[in-house]
Simulated assay, not measured.
Amino acid sequence: MAAGGFCKLPNGRVVVALNLPRPAAVDGSVRVLVHAQNRARALTRLRNLGLRAVYLRGNGAPPTPDEITAVLHHPDGLIWRTAPDNGVDTPPDLVQELWHPIRSLLRRPAASA
Rank of each mutant, 00 (worst) to 15 (best):
A2Q: 04
A3C: 00
C7F: 12
K8S: 07
P10L: 02
P10V: 03
G12F: 03
V16H: 08
R22D: 01
R22W: 03
P23K: 10
V26Q: 14
G28E: 06
G28T: 08
R31K: 02
L33T: 13
V34P: 00
H35C: 06
A36S: 13
N38E: 12
N38T: 00
A40H: 06
R45P: 01
L46T: 14
R47H: 15
N48Y: 01
N48I: 00
L49M: 11
G50S: 05
G50F: 05
R52G: 05
A53M: 09
V54E: 12
Y55S: 05
L56F: 10
R57C: 02
R57F: 08
A61R: 12
P63R: 12
P63H: 11
D66V: 02
D66L: 10
V71P: 01
L72E: 13
H73W: 10
P75T: 13
P75S: 09
L78A: 03
W80P: 00
R81E: 02
R81F: 07
R81L: 02
P84L: 06
N86C: 14
N86D: 12
V88T: 13
T90A: 11
T90I: 12
P91H: 14
H100T: 00
I102R: 05
R103A: 12
R103W: 09
A111D: 07
A113V: 14
